[in-house]
């Protein structure tokens, strides 16, 4: 018997597999397909103070080994999430969820996190300071250590739940941002968000996405994500949730060897709705193959 349990800030997960925000909605599309209680946890769709429609279409483009998205944080707003989405989610998922939060000012983040602090099912608050698809917020806060620290501080003041800051790879030195978040009191870090990218329609001579740019995800970004998790693991003492292009149980092991305490699976869910289920079912086989008795003991094992 292998042990797939991992721990994030006192929260024990049956396994390290967590669907990433924006690729799993609020869970129930997937709950129609399989019992999502097999997941370690899941990070729900990025939630903001007010409801948002997001960007105009097209919002999606194909890339080699991946995809671009410029959805732009479409969500019904925190009040609707609390009154409508979470009660529905509770019926299909009986574990703690990760509440993914975004905003356009420190006050936005504080408001949304304070509202979610009262929700019993929320185990961790994940602050997205790295969305590349919104203007005047999102990634701007993750682009400098000072701004990232400021958001960390205001959020920590309004919630007792563990706060994980979700970092952008679109920076010169991700370690500096990670350290700033840790010093400001973050309980953990999630990385990476998508890489800013673009495709151009040759025939129309215009960007394919209406937003012009979008966030790159999928297997194309896996080596970049792995390197950043590796670097950040060395720089900080708080746990890191690793993500970016994970497609298989082997990728989970690789990401944990780089330093991840748990992993998020994103784009894979969109091309195979059973991706997380398959990864969870395959993990024991891969662990046995590589003689891993407990996943917790391999965290950072490549250092």
């Amino acid at each position: 018997m292998v042990n797939t349990k991992v721990t994030l800030s006192g929260l024990t997960l049956d396994n390290p597999v967590i669907p990433a925000s924006g690729t799993f909605g609020y869970g129930y599309e997937f709950a129609e397909l399989y019992d999502i209680n097999i997941l370690g946890s899941f990070s729900f769709k990025g939630t903001t103070k007010e409801g948002r429609f997001g960007n105009p279409s097209p919002r999606i483009a194909e890339t080699p080994s991946g995809m671009l998205n410029a959805v732009g944080l479409q969500n019904p707003g925190v009040e609707a999430v609390i009154s409508e989405e979470l009660p529905k989610l509770k019926k299909v998922f009986n574990k703690k969820v990760i509440a993914n939060v975004s905003g356009f000012s420190p006050e936005d983040y504080a408001y949304t996190c304070e509202r979610l602090d009262g929700e019993e099912q929320v185990g961790i608050i994940e602050c997205n300071i790295s969305c590349p698809n919104v203007h005047g917020g999102g990634m701007a806060f993750g682009a400098s250590p000072e701004a990232a620290a400021e958001i960390t501080r205001v959020v920590k003041k309004v919630t007792k739940k563990p706060v994980y800051m979700k970092l952008s790879p679109n920076v010169t030195d991700i370690k500096a941002v990670a350290l700033a978040c840790e010093e400001a009191g973050a309980d953990g870090l999630s990385l990476i968000n998508t890489l800013l990218g673009m495709r151009i329609d040759i025939k129309g001579r215009k960007p394919l996405l209406a937003n012009r740019t979008g966030g790159l995800s999928g297997p194309a970004v896996f080596p970049v994500a792995l390197r950043m998790v590796y670097d950040v693991y060395e720089a900080v003492k708080i746990p890191v949730i690793g993500m970016g292009g994970i497609m298989s149980a082997e990728d989970i092991v690789e990401m944990m060897l780089a330093g991840a305490s748990a992993c998020q699976v994103g784009a894979a869910n969109l091309v195979d709705p059973f991706a997380c289920k398959k990864i969870i079912e395959d993990l024991p086989r891969v662990m046995e193959k590589y003689k891993i008795k407990s996943l917790e003991e391999i965290i950072g094992g490549a250092h």
Binding site: T23, F24, G54, S57, R59, I60, N69, Q74, L270, P273
Partner: peptide, 12 residues
Amino acid sequence: MGCGFGACMGCS
């Protein structure tokens, strides 16, 4: 579309 089954909000 991204997923085709309502998860990604790509085609809203």
